[in-house]
Design a protein around this nucleic acid. Structure first.
Length: 448
DNA sequence: AGTTAAGGTAAGGGTAATACTTCGAA
DNA sequence: ATTCGAAGTATTACCCTTACCTTAAC
């Protein structure tokens, strides 16, 4: 028997996983996933149809050479009722629907789930066949779909957990249908991506938290003796090979000279100089074409690749510096962010592609910054952990509309920062219709 | 015997969570 | 002057994709 007051459905008394599913199938997908997780009913989840199409854009025109699907948030100007959309912007996409005949192409689905394509082959397929596939972090929903599919496979074949691990980590061929079968559970993911993801997720040495000084010593010694053969190093240290590699390159390499703590003006100038030299002066993109391992080396190893990259993207990049002015986050920004997220119509915030959110008319907030803001706002809601994305969305839409400063009201407090006021000082009049908050149908006012 | 597909390993690039520090309003 | 929550900054574990290689299967 399972009781969950937040579901708003009667208590469940199910004899089998299938029974549970039949009952749950009509309810909110994210809640169903939560319930199944709580119950550890992965096998049950395997039979549920979680394949409701997420919100994706049609495949990009081949000329742009983009390979992965994209989300298309509404622009800040549209949210503020200033104009329809920025010139040259992609037309508004109708959320919740795939373009006909593209994404649901069964032939492509079969290829993605069965053919082990490398990056070159994938991009060729994108160009020539209009293949669409998904990149980036696996969302919570995809995770649930995969877990369910794996459990389903295990049960159907009558395998033990150990047998399953043998299949996942076996070096023999002939694992027959395992990889293609579970890949089919996550639409738009190539088999190779699922393979890497699952091998990491199910690894027995996964997730061991903080490194102890003794482990560091063990790792240093292993690297000194074996070199960067991470699989062998892994056996010695007792951590996953990729974790050994990460610990070494991010924290142990150049340990004698490595600096921590706030950056000095000199260090910042040095980093700016190096990045500029490596990109702009070679006709490359400052925000995309930087090899941070090389940058770290050129800093004399005194700062690691993560330190350099974060310093750059969070505070030194011209885009972030915003012409020397440091904008301050305002209620208006919060309002825009909530409606942008809403316009994505995702089922869960782990599905959000944050890189798609910044827009040029909106204070140059970085994707990283927006994501952290979102998290802060979300955590500001009591009991958010137990809520679905849709519920959180509703609360935030109402809350942020209410906390919005009324048009032309009040002088803002003086701060040492240049005004954030975001989008621009004299133009933050909001369409009164928007201030009323969300409508009951759940559709965002910005789309309507 | 040669070719190709499957898949193992390492490297490159990145994000999420959290700890720590500073700010600023009351 | 002090307090305290919010915002900013730094750290670190963890993750995804790609390149390159080996090996089994045809």
């Amino acid at each position: 028997m399972y009781h969950d007051p937040t579901l708003g459905i009667p208590d469940l008394n199910f004899a089998s996983s299938e029974d549970l599913l039949r009952t749950l199938q009509d309810f909110d997908i994210s809640k169903v996933v939560n319930v199944l997780k709580t119950l550890g009913e992965a096998a049950a989840a395997a039979t549920i149809n979680l394949n409701t199409p997420p919100v994706y854009l049609p495949p990009p025109p081949p000329s742009q050479g983009l390979s992965s699907v994209k989300q298309n948030p509404v622009g800040s100007d549209t949210i503020l009722g200033r104009k329809k959309s920025a010139p040259g912007a992609t037309p508004d996409f109708v959320p919740g629907h795939f373009p006909q005949g593209e994404v649901e192409n069964p032939e492509h689905a079969h290829i993605l789930a069965n053919v082990w394509m490398n990056a070159a082959k994938l991009s060729e397929m994108v160009k020539k066949e209009g293949l669409v596939y998904k990149k980036g972090k696996f969302s919570a929903i995809e995770e649930a779909q995969l877990t369910a599919a794996i459990e389903n496979f295990r049960v159907n074949k009558g395998l033990s957990q150990e047998d399953l691990c043998n299949i996942i980590f076996s070096k023999d061929r002939g694992r027959d249908t395992f990889w293609p079968e579970i890949t089919s559970a996550v639409p738009l993911r190539p088999i190779i991506a699922v393979y890497h993801h699952v091998r990491r997720t199910y690894h027995p040495l996964k997730g061991q938290g903080k490194w102890m000084p003794s482990e560091d010593e063990l790792l240093l010694q292993a690297v000194a003796e074996l070199g960067q053969q991470w699989e062998k190093v892994s056996e010695r240290v007792g951590r996953m090979s990729s974790d050994c590699r990460d610990r070494y390159r991010n924290h142990l390499q150049n340990r004698e000279v490595r600096r921590n703590g706030p950056w000095t003006k000199e260090e910042e100038a040095e980093l700016t100089h190096i990045v500029t030299e490596m990109t702009v002066e070679q006709g490359k993109d400052m925000d995309n074409d930087v090899f941070w391992g090389v940058v770290s080396e050129r800093m004399g190893g005194r700062r690691g690749r993560q330190q350099c990259r974060i310093k750059w993207t969070d505070s030194l990049s011209p885009q972030v510096k915003n012409l020397g002015e440091k904008p301050r986050w305002s209620q208006l920004d919060a309002f825009i962010l909530v409606h942008k997220v809403d316009s994505l119509n995702v089922r869960d915030d782990s599905e959000i592609d944050w890189k798609q959110l910044p827009d040029e008319h909106w204070n140059s907030w970085s994707a990283h910054h927006l994501q952290r803001r979102w998290l802060t706002m979300k955590r500001g809601i009591k009991g958010y952990e137990e809520m679905s994305h849709a519920e959180i969305m509703e609360i935030l839409k109402t809350k942020k509309a209410q906390s919005l400063p009324p048009p032309n009201s009040g002088r803002r407090k003086k701060t040492k920062y240049t005004s954030a006021e975001a989008v621009d000082e004299d133009d933050d009049t909001i369409d009164p219709a928007l201030q009323a908050g969300s409508n009951s149908s759940g559709t965002s006012p910005v789309i309507a």
